[in-house]
Simulated scan of single mutants.
Amino acid sequence: MEVDQETPKAGVVNVTSIESWDSYVQQSKSHGTPIVAHFSASWCIPSVAMIPFFEELALTFHDITFLTVDVDDFKDVATKYEVKAMPTFLLIKEGDVIGKLVGANPDEIKKRIETLLQSNTPFVV
Rank of each mutant, 00 (worst) to 15 (best):
D73P: 09
A85K: 14
E55T: 00
T68G: 06
L91Y: 07
E82A: 07
V71N: 06
G32A: 09
K93T: 04
E114S: 06
G99K: 02
I35C: 02
V69S: 00
G99E: 09
V48C: 07
F61I: 00
G99L: 05
F66Q: 09
A58H: 05
I92L: 09
L59I: 12
A78C: 01
F74L: 02
I45E: 15
F74I: 02
V36F: 01
M86Q: 10
G95P: 12
I109M: 01
V36W: 03
S40N: 08
K111G: 05
D73I: 05
I92F: 00
A49T: 08
E56H: 10
N105L: 14
I51N: 15
G95Q: 09
L59G: 14
N105D: 13
K110T: 10
E82F: 11
G99T: 06
L59H: 07
D72G: 01
M50Q: 13
M50L: 15
I92N: 00
R112I: 05
F39A: 09
I109L: 10
F54V: 07
P46V: 13
F61D: 02
L117K: 12
I64C: 04
E55M: 05
T60Q: 15
G99H: 05
V36I: 08
K93C: 11
Q118W: 12
D63L: 02
I113E: 06
D70N: 12
G103C: 10
L57W: 08
A78W: 07
K84L: 12
E55Y: 06
A49L: 10
T33R: 10
I51D: 14
E94L: 03
A58T: 05
I51V: 11
P46N: 14
L117F: 09
L116V: 08
V77K: 04
